[in-house]
Every structure is written in structure tokens, then in C-alpha cells.
């Protein structure tokens, strides 16, 4: 079994990087959660913009 690496996303407003490997503990998002599977209403933990303001990043 190969584990596929999940795409990281960066907040275009402040530069915060959502790394699926870490999740977002403060918002109770467990590690391993793909960006596409973030809960409804999740916002950037630093500057509070919505997910449409995020951009893929390596």
C-alpha cells in the first residue's frame, strides 16, 4: 500500500499553510484531513478568510 501525499494549501491573504499531515488542532481538524475535506465553515486559523482564498503550494 502506498500512501499518497496530500496537497498542501496556502492562505493567499496571510501566508498560513494548511498541511494535511498536521490538520488544524485548534479547530479540531485531525491530522490526515485533505484540504477538500475540511469541515464546512472552516476558516484560516490566522486571518479567518474562507477556503476559496487558498492556493495549492508545495
Amino acid at each position: 500500500m502506498t500512501e499518497q501525499k496530500l496537497q498542501k494549501f496556502i492562505c493567499t491573504n496571510c501566508g498560513y499553510v494548511y498541511d494535511p499531515a498536521n490538520g488544524d488542532v485548534m479547530s479540531h481538524v485531525p491530522p490526515g484531513t485533505a484540504f477538500e475535506h475540511l469541515p464546512e465553515g472552516w476558516v484560516c486559523p490566522v486571518c479567518y478568510v474562507t477556503t476559496d482564498q487558498f492556493d495549492p503550494v508545495d
Binding site: I10, C11, T12, N13, C14, G15, Q53, D55, P56, V57
Partner: peptide, 16 residues
């Protein structure tokens, strides 16, 4: 300078 925010956010050079 937060170049990520400048390029992608302020300037709109998003990777999309």
C-alpha cells in the same frame, strides 16, 4: 515582507 501574501493575495498571482 510576506511575499506569499503579496504575490498570491495582494497581486493575484495565484497558482490556482
Amino acid at each position: 515582507v510576506n511575499t506569499e501574501a503579496l504575490f498570491r493575495g495582494r497581486w493575484g498571482y495565484r497558482r490556482a
